[in-house]
Design a protein around this nucleic acid. Structure first.
Lengths: 236, 236
DNA sequence: GATATAAACATGTCTAAACTTATTTATCCC
DNA sequence: GGGATAAATAAGTTTAGACATGTTTATATC
């Protein structure tokens, strides 16, 4: 089976990836099976080995193939369910929906770091960091609660920023690029304070996203986002 | 700046990616800046252009760089927060924690598809599909609720499978590979039935994951997973 | 000045060949 | 049989060179 000589102008790798995917989906190659090696596929498809390599690496990233040196390439036994979550920038998300964005600072002070955030940041609990709490609004209705800890050691310039004017999220995005980030997702019942700020009933289920970013100086910031009840995060 | 001649044995692309990342993090190259083109970087690093290309494509995937033909490569203005969520296979997750896995079928029948699932699957509401409801247990304590719709048109073999013996999740994973999947995450208060099955109080916040898979014949299955309160999904 | 056309350019992709590295398989020795 | 060692193998990576493809910029034309 050679590539259709006309069709693929400069996307042979993608074509090959599709073809391999098809063979897996149609169970021509079954879970656990070893598939032909790169050199062999290169010949059957009439392309260079590097091109096959690119295609197979793509499928390996997707989780469809398991590749090991010398052992060859196999169809993954338990295709793991991976999906890429995108946490949008609040303001952009709201404005993209044609709504008016605004935000309000609830608190901005130095406080000792609680244990949960300390764990996420890899810092000692009780360390005094900058603590920000904000509400983000769409058309003056609460959209998201933000509870953020900022490590001035990693972002010295932060001292001189006035977050009453600027959105902390955006300032950090623009001024504190990160090397590494961790993220987790959970659900929690709104406590009394959250209910008041989000203008909902206490106990309603909130989607919670925790995100911590790091640069070479250490943890930059750890933020807990609590979304309006019913909010859906979509993954690709 | 040439690569340290000794260190990188066969990982120059990664080294270059790290170096570019460093320059961005240290604000040598700032958000929105155009960075030198591939040919130039290839010379400064003393490698082939293909190697630079690989490194920069990596960073573009990470969302750190914006690349456009002819226009060149720029540091992303608004680094989007992307993270890869992995939804583990229940049994493996439970057994990996050293617990005993078991499951129970609550219902298994043909029913008309409700609107929400129909939307996700791209099918007409009311269409009669196979409907499965299960509880997964760890050490005999409820761990996860599963509410699944299966499209027999995409998986004809399903008719002959006895899910009282086999876990539907695993059967599908092994026997119905998919082309494409969609996933979303939200939070919901446990209703009375969910509370009973999960042995929790009604109203507790549950993390909900909806996942739909497709193959070339159409939607295969759409599943709603409701996790125990407090469950955390971790993204990389 | 507006608009079509051509040139320039940076990234995108592919190739063929070489070398590296992890891992398996075979072989030899005890 | 057990264990160390060497050979074989398949993927991982890099290179230099080529051509393709979008985009921008400059140029010519109306």
């Amino acid at each position: 089976m050679t590539l259709p000589p006309k069709i693929p102008p400069a996307a042979k790798a993608l074509f090959i990836a599709d073809e391999v995917r098809r063979r897996i989906v149609e169970r021509e190659w079954r879970q656990g099976d070893r598939i032909p090696d790169e050199a062999e596929l290169a010949i059957t498809f009439g392309v260079a080995r590097a091109t096959v390599n690119k295609a197979l690496q793509l499928l390996a990233e997707e989780g469809l193939l398991d590749r090991r040196r010398r052992a060859g390439t196999r169809v993954t036994l338990n295709p793991v369910r991976k999906a890429t979550l995108t946490v949008p920038i609040v303001r952009e998300q709201i404005e993209a929906a044609g709504l008016t964005y605004s935000h309000r600072i609830i608190a901005s002070r130095r406080s000792p770091l609680p244990a949960s955030s300390a764990r996420r940041m890899g810092l000692a609990a009780g360390l005094v960091l900058l603590h920000l709490r904000e509400v983000h609004y769409a058309n003056n209705r609460p959209w998201q609660l933000e509870d953020r800890w900022i490590n001035p050691l990693a972002v010295p310039e932060i001292e001189s920023v006035d977050f009453r004017v600027l959105n902390s999220n955006e300032w950090l995005v623009r001024n504190a690029p990160y090397f590494r980030a961790t993220m987790d997702v959970t659900a929690a019942n709104a406590d009394r304070r959250e209910a008041r700020l989000l203008e909902i009933r206490q106990g309603q289920a909130l989607l919670i996203v925790n995100r911590t970013t790091f640069n070479d100086l250490g943890p930059i910031t750890s933020v807990r986002l609590a979304f309006q009840p019913g909010h859906v995060l979509t993954a690709d």
